[in-house]
Write a protein that binds this DNA or RNA. Structure first.
Lengths: 125, 125
DNA sequence: CTTGTATTTTAGTTTTATCTAAACTTACGG
DNA sequence: CCGTAAGTTTAGATAAAACTAAAATACAAG
């Protein structure tokens, strides 16, 4: 639980990378493909920072390098990040819902009184 | 558990302030007195950042403003900070001990076999 | 050996954070 | 009202971080 942990996690870019690596291991190139707004070089530099902070590890496979999150290095912050991410998702969903409600006020039980619970929305991820 | 939390905690200066406020509430001036290497203005700015991140709160009392840590806003990070601080203290103590041992290799039971435990060091904090 | 793909590294630029000095605000004490 | 003490705010300087473009490295395939 080093003092460098917090400053490493301070960068949104690095958190984005961490989030990408959260569920599956990825090569540097795959990480980059998921963030097209920056250079490959920039991604590589951030991966290096994460590596030096011990938050990820890297294993060479032929010409590729596969990066993996080291959750044990994150300690209590791991669950915090997960919460942050799911909360952000939830907020996005809520916002979209409100938007939709505002655009089209959703015809209320016209047509016919049959079929009560057909109005529940399917959850999108 | 906001997204600004981590970047707010990334600054050593802000962590220093947080540490000062950890055990007792202090006025802005008292915080500043404890860190004479920076301007009062600088301290005030950092207090503002902490305030806006919700990590401290401030209550006006006459011409003073008393700042207080909001631990509940820190979530799991609170204990992490405490660990960081106590660990750092422990490392300091250990280092001082080793230094002392290196400087004076501590005469081994010469003179006379009387009075065994007079060589123990007082712990400094 | 040459070419191509995947990645890192370097040098330089832009962006952001932190700090200082000085101006400003507010409350208290004559 | 004036002076002073506590604090904030602003404008500008300096330092640190992030990014880009280009060069360098590594490895695979022909």
């Amino acid at each position: 639980m080093d003092t460098a942990l917090l400053s490493t996690l301070a960068s949104p870019r690095r958190r984005e990378i961490l989030r990408l690596l959260w569920t599956r291991d990825l090569t540097a190139g795959e990480v980059h493909q998921a963030m097209p707004d920056v250079t490959f070089g920039a991604v590589s530099l951030q991966l290096k920072v994460l590596l030096e902070a011990g938050l990820v590890e890297c294993q060479a496979d032929r010409q590729y390098r596969v990066y993996r999150v080291r959750r044990e290095a994150l300690g209590p912050v791991a669950s915090m990040l997960e919460e942050m991410w799911t909360d952000a998702l939830a907020r996005l969903r809520l916002k979209a819902e409100l938007e939709a409600a505002r655009r089209g006020p959703r015809p209320r039980r016209r047509r016919s009184p049959r079929s009560r619970r057909s109005r529940t929305k399917p959850e999108d991820t």
